[in-house]
């Protein structure tokens, strides 16, 4: 059984705040941030969700942790629907599923010292026997993420970006979770620090049998950390399969376009001669008809403009939504 199962997740935001719309009495506009998404994450897997800004990656991350309530659909954690959890069950789930946030510094309380930040989850979940043990546990957690004891007395503003990120990871690990949602955990970090964080996350995964949902837009990083990849475009998964296949045998034209912008530093290439996909991601308020990628797709034909493709199996464990393959 998969650890996390997402079934037909939908999250629509209603946009009717504007006075003009109220005057025109046009009724609410649905912004389909996430539209009919289904995927599974097996235990000890890392599923990377990639896509451009506004494609709904973060909405997925938050829905999976029930930080926002979905409009429709079901999210199963260990086979049980998290949307029907009562208060007690939800609290237990919160301890089991953690999140590492995008901005390392603004996710730490500036008035708390590191010790308080890392131990707060332990207080909330009543896992403290006495204060003496508490400091030992904090030190242990800091040691795990490669910070020495002296950091426990520092404030977030005294930490560098990489250190702040490590404190965020230590806090996420405090309750020994099984599942961690990582929302662009390396964005804004320098290369040398980024590689240290990636190695740390990989090591922790092996040691503690963690399962990651990894949100990212750095494809090189995705290759390194994940074993499954879901590519999103305008609120939908367009292709999902294991990492090797997506890098070598992707089928969806958007995946192709996205990964063709990927070059290694040792390849001989330049931006001048490269074929580059045109246009930008359309607004989710007014998405194109049919396949939402068709205005930018070089293979598009008549059917793409009218009929929305469904996510279908191309081969075992490889799903894509494109009329070319159905």
């Amino acid at each position: 059984m998969a650890l996390v199962e997402v079934k037909n997740l939908k999250k629509y935001y209603v946009n009717n705040d504007s006075l003009l719309y109220k005057l025109a009495n046009k009724g609410p506009i649905n912004v389909k941030a996430v539209d009919d998404l289904s995927f599974e994450i097996e235990k000890e897997d890392t599923l990377a969700v990639v896509g451009e800004s506004g494609c709904g990656k973060t909405t997925v991350a938050r829905s999976v942790l029930r930080l926002i309530e979905p409009t429709a659909g079901e999210i199963l954690y260990k086979g049980r629907s998290i949307n029907n959890f009562n208060k007690q069950e939800l609290k237990a789930f919160r301890a089991d599923a953690q999140m590492i946030l995008q901005d390392p510094r603004s996710s730490l309380n500036p008035r708390f010292i590191v010790e308080e930040i890392v131990s707060e989850p332990l207080y909330i979940h009543n896992q403290i026997k006495d204060d003496f043990n508490l400091l030992d546990r904090v030190w242990e957690l800091l040691d795990l993420v490669g910070l020495s004891k002296r950091y426990s007395e520092l404030f977030p503003h005294e930490l560098s970006g990489g250190q702040a990120r490590r404190v965020g990871i230590a806090r996420a690990l405090a309750l020994q979770p099984e599942f961690i949602v990582c929302d662009e955990p390396t964005s804004g970090l320098d290369i040398s620090i980024m590689s240290a964080v990636l190695n740390l996350m990989k090591k922790l995964q092996q040691e503690y049998h963690l399962t990651y949902l990894w949100i990212s837009h750095n494809l090189h990083e995705v290759r390194y950390i994940s074993n499954k990849v879901a590519v999103m475009y305008l609120g939908k998964i367009v292709e999902i399969t294991d990492t090797n296949t997506i890098f070598n045998n992707s089928v969806h034209p958007y995946t192709e376009a996205l990964f063709s912008s990927l070059r290694g530093i040792n390849d001989d290439w330049n931006y001048k001669e490269r074929e580059i996909i045109e246009g930008e991601v359309p607004s989710p308020i007014n998405p194109p008809s049919g396949c939402s990628f068709h205005p930018r797709c070089k293979y598009s034909f008549a059917k793409c403009k009218k009929v929305e493709p469904e996510l279908k199996t191309v081969e075992a464990g490889h799903l894509a939504s494109c009329h070319l393959y159905n």
Binding site: I191, S192, M194, S195, L198, N199, K202, N218, L219, H220, E221, R223, Y224, F247, L262, G264, I265, N266
Partner: peptide, 12 residues
């Protein structure tokens, strides 16, 4: 240090 899609060994 740089993660690269062609690289599979552990990052330094």
């Amino acid at each position: 240090c740089l993660p690269d899609y062609q690289k599979t060994e552990e990052l330094q």
